[in-house]
Amino acid sequence: MQDVPADGETMGEVVMRGNNVMQGYFNDPDATEWAFRGGWFHSGDLAVMYPDGYIELRDRAKDIIISSGTNISTIEVERVIYKHPAVLEVAVIAIPDAKRGEVPKAFVTLKSDFSVTVQEIIDFCRQHLAVFKIPKAVEFIELPKTATGKVQKYLLREKEWVGYEKRIH
Rank of each mutant, 00 (worst) to 15 (best):
D3P: 11
G8P: 03
G12Y: 00
E13C: 02
V15K: 01
R17A: 12
N20T: 11
V21L: 02
V21N: 03
G24M: 01
Y25D: 04
N27D: 15
D28L: 07
P29Q: 07
A31K: 10
E33V: 06
E33F: 08
W34E: 15
F36M: 09
G39A: 09
W40K: 11
H42C: 07
D45V: 05
L46C: 02
L46A: 00
V48K: 02
M49T: 09
D52F: 07
G53R: 00
E56Q: 14
D59R: 01
R60E: 14
A61C: 11
K62M: 11
D63R: 00
I64Q: 04
S68Q: 13
S68T: 13
G69F: 14
T74I: 06
T74E: 13
I75V: 14
V77G: 04
E78D: 12
V80G: 05
K83M: 13
P85T: 12
A86K: 03
V87W: 04
L88E: 14
V92M: 10
V92K: 01
I95P: 05
P96H: 08
D97E: 12
E102C: 10
V103Y: 01
K105M: 15
A106K: 01
S112K: 12
S112D: 15
S112E: 15
F114N: 13
F114L: 08
I121P: 03
I122W: 04
D123C: 10
Q127R: 14
Q127W: 08
K133M: 09
I134R: 02
P135A: 05
V138I: 09
E139H: 01
K145I: 02
K145P: 05
T146A: 03
A147K: 09
A147P: 04
T148S: 12
G149A: 01
V151S: 02
K153R: 06
K153Q: 10
L156A: 10
V162W: 11
G163N: 08
G163P: 07
E165N: 11
K166T: 14
I168W: 13
